[in-house]
Amino acid sequence: MAGTFKFELVSPERILISGDAEQAVLPGSEGQMTIFAGHAPVVTTLRPGMIEVAIGGASKKIFVKSGFAEIDAERVTVLAEKAYEAGELDAARVAEELRTAEAELADAKDDEAMLMAASAVEQLRALGGKAA
């Protein structure tokens, strides 16, 4: 393995994670992507989903609701609009997010918005099953 890279997860209100990671899985808008150190520089938008990042042997899961990521060889910066660590997510919050996502799905105007909302609903349903 090529070693570690600097991983940062930033939401508008605070920095959630900042540290040296070995591996990160991001829900890119054009497909799930796994990142190791030395990745080619990419800027991608994210769809709602789980980010899994391995920092110091421990794996962390964070749910993000849209955002984008800037990736280069030695750092990954995720700018998430809304992000919850898996531990922070309780059933009530999942239910609330699910409601907004379903509402968004109902009045999505174009394919893209519909796709985004649908994937949010799907992810949250999966989570809701776990949390409940």
Partner: peptide, 19 residues
């Protein structure tokens, strides 16, 4: 100059401008 963009630049730009 070295970044790749996914989806294409104009789309990301549109999204980011709103953000």
């Amino acid at each position: 100059a070295v970044y790749e963009y996914e989806p294409e630049e104009d789309k990301i730009l549109g999204y980011l401008l709103k953000r």
